[in-house]
């Protein structure tokens, strides 16, 4: 397989604190089960620093991240809801990596996929925002993810240390 040879310049990489990812998968005619799930989290004042939802071809997949201290409460809530029991997959100990700015360039996305894929690092989710491209990987692999990305990206010389911060 050919490799990516040229490096691209980015402004920085930010790492999140440890999180838990929740995936809801559902076959049906609407995206409303996701809304129902988010309603339950909202009623319990549980924040989701990352959310992605897709509803195409009758297949709903919704993912979100929560802080580990909310996990016990969320598990209790899911167990008490017949509609959600058994429908949620929990991925423990994940972290978010945000690269900025993405400049709406597919090169940045291509490099993330190539770098993670060629070093066999997991990719659990991703979403772009106005300036950043944020992806989720294993929390224990955050350093490895930065090393693999740095091979294809030029970072500022005065970049702050890569330490996990707020979600």
């Amino acid at each position: 397989m050919p490799a990516i040879k040229e490096k691209i310049k980015i402004g920085g990489i930010k790492l999140s604190s440890e999180l838990v990812q929740l995936n809801l998968m559902y076959q049906g005619t609407s995206s409303f089960p996701a809304s129902y799930f988010f309603q339950i989290l909202t009623k319990n004042q549980i924040n989701m620093p990352f959310v992605s939802t897709s509803f195409l071809g009758g297949r709903l997949q919704s993912s979100c991240c929560i802080l580990p201290e909310n996990l016990g409460r969320v598990k209790e809530l899911v167990q008490s809801e017949d509609k959600l029991k058994g429908e949620i997959e929990f991925i423990h100990s994940v972290g978010m990596v945000s690269l900025f700015p993405h400049q709406y360039r597919l090169k940045v996305l291509g490099i993330v996929l190539y770098a993670l894929g060629s070093t066999r690092l997991p990719l659990y989710g991703m979403s772009s925002s106005i300036s950043a491209l944020t992806f989720i990987t294993a929390y224990s692999k955050l350093d490895a993810a930065v090393v693999s990305l740095a091979e294809y990206m030029n970072l500022p010389l005065n970049h702050s240390p890569f330490t996990p911060g707020t979600p």
Partner: peptide, 10 residues
Amino acid sequence: GFHLVMAQHS
């Protein structure tokens, strides 16, 4: 280019 990119793992 893109307006939005998103990925989900199943």
